[in-house]
Design a protein around this nucleic acid. Structure first.
Lengths: 207, 207, 207, 207
DNA sequence: CTTTAAACGAGACGGTACGTCCTGTCTTATT
DNA sequence: AATAAGACAGGACGTACCGTCTCGTTTAAAG
């Protein structure tokens, strides 16, 4: 049990203001070019107030993502009973967002934050992938149980492959993006079934 | 045909010295913490000499990787005729190197460099993934022809999934790494076959 | 009335530390060779702290002189009632200091600073010559009233001639200095009387 | 006797081009801001060619002045037999030029060059003031002999006072300049006679 | 109410690195 | 051998942020 706080309590709206400032600047400048000084200024807040709440830029970004201030929405996946379909729907959310520059900026930022090294990388990994990963593993496990995915599936490895592909797609330059849709990707990964190709079927040339 | 060069020619050894300095500092400090000033100092070179040759830290790192000064070796894959086996062997090289801190540092650096934005990201993508990707696509195509991989395989998507997973494994903190071996991963991705699990078969606990 | 200051107030001792560092380096290296970086380092201060207070090297030097940190002492002249004698005594202070390397360094620095152009030159002129000039004009005026100097004396022109000679003596190389004493110079300028020559009377050869 | 020169002879026009480039840049940017690199570029010449001929910026400027490329004209003074009048005429040349910005820039540059310290200051002093000084001393000596100046005049000190005043007038900011004419100044210095004031006679207010 | 204690905006502070500019020297190929 | 061009090690420039540290002020709860 925490001791009753004394002195002036922290202003809860300040958190929001900072996270929103971070979100805007991230979209505008990218993670690297965004500075804590600029975040504070845009939030109309002293620098110390930022440092009092988060230890680093990476931590701010991680929180902004988790709090939903940044583009990637981690809504709970649907649970219709059809695990494969649910997974497709859910991943579709993410793959669909890869078209939006803001989302790409965020994922790039997270990757950059992860490379900052030190404990933040671990934190970020935990906070960012943690909850989503659990959902993913659940659905994969369910799919195996229901016989939708093959029994030998290494669900942890599968989860990593999904996350990794998502990350990779965000990092590569837009001109090189291959427009495979999420469902096709999932089939590729998990089923050995014919992936449903995008309408028209023909793959565009790489630049 | 290039114009005839005038004035004192650039010293080719200087390039090497700078790239090697970058390699060492990258391994020691990581991409973010490595400074151009330190690279110049370690190479025994003026800062301007660095800037004369590369426009940014990202560009230096990209070149260092391509020139083979940085840990990831992109040797040509073996061509035994068995495409699936060749691919396994070749990817094994990369996955095996994920255990070495220097290699991880490099991949993290490349990711960070890619997030630096601008044209360098594209350059980096082209130069880094380009050659390797061609090899990968070749082997995948061959495997499909020989019936080792299913006919419906989207080889571009498969290549992205492989690259992405490799990247993801390098970025996540060591404590969270799942020790699936390369062969198992490949089976997962391409075959729908039972992956060969590591001896003992039990998955270690996550931290 | 000035606006109420906000934020952390500037440390007044820091001003002193910087000015003293400038004084020392000026004496040691001369104005040209003295760098702002070295001033900051010697004062144990960040470079920005220097730039926050003064816009240029010239401005620092000007302030250092006015604050008395640099060698030229502009003590108020004596007021014995004998204006000519007072002037001689007072100017003697300055001419006497021309033998000290530190003083010469300062005057040279002021001249160099003046040539930096811009508004600082004006500032420097005002602040450096201003107060002393008033004293000089006062004494000259008094001397004319008392009949010690001829009635037709253009006191402003006389003041310029005095300042200019002082400056010139500081700028020329030591080997070329003529050792006329202050009193003799003054007589030359103002009285048409026989200057009191230095003991021995013979002028040394120029180099 | 010098050995017969071998190899390609120096181009004499190059000297001129460099000195003229220096003259132009001096007028445009001032001594401090003028760089040797810019001089070479403007003269259409390699940097080394400049360094082969002069050891320093100060030396270039000194030569530019002596060669008449820079504003101050040191024509020989007239010799009418009336030493005082000749001196007035001659000094009038200099004082008159103080109105031209280019001339002021040059004198300021010379002062700055003198403060560069080292041997260049001495060189510069010798080359710049040397020839003119001889002329000045000659006329002063002549004036004393003819009884135009008082017999007790210390001619070396008088020459310094004249040079110093000229220098001082060039260094002080234009707004502070007192418009005493040369003749009046000279009378002040040498004669104890009523100086001829400018028409109207009233001194303008200082800024 | 008054005291106490923390939060807050502001901005100074010692540092570090940035990317640019210039110095004076050194190679090139050319004249 | 001199030249135009330009690379080179070095070093200072003035700027931007870092993360920390005062300031004076504000806001609650405790006395």
């Amino acid at each position: 049990m925490t001791a009753k706080p004394r002195g002036r309590p922290r202003n809860a709206q300040t958190d929001t203001a900072i996270l929103e400032a971070a979100r805007d600047l991230m979209a505008a400048d990218g993670y690297e070019r965004m500075t804590i000084e600029a975040i504070a200024a845009r939030a109309g807040v002293g620098k110390q107030t930022v440092y009092r709440r988060w230890p680093s830029k990476a931590a701010i970004v991680a929180e902004a993502v988790m709090a939903g201030h940044l583009g990637i929405r981690a809504d709970a996946p649907p649970r219709t009973g059809d695990a494969a379909a649910d997974l497709r729907t859910w991943l579709g959310q993410f793959f669909g967002q890869l078209g939006q520059p803001a989302t790409v900026a965020v994922i790039r930022g997270l990757a950059a934050a992860a490379t900052d090294g030190g404990t933040e990388a671990e934190q970020l990994y935990e906070r960012f992938t943690g909850p989503g990963r659990e959902q993913m593993l659940d659905l994969l496990r369910l799919g195996v149980e229901h016989g939708q995915f093959r029994a030998s599936l290494d669900i942890e490895a599968a989860a990593d492959a999904i996350s990794g592909t998502l990350l990779y797609r965000a990092l590569i330059p837009p001109s090189a993006v291959v427009d495979t849709d999420a469902a096709g990707f999932l089939d590729l990964l998990l089923l050995g079934m014919t992936p449903r190709t995008s309408p028209g079927g023909t793959r565009p040339e790489r630049r």
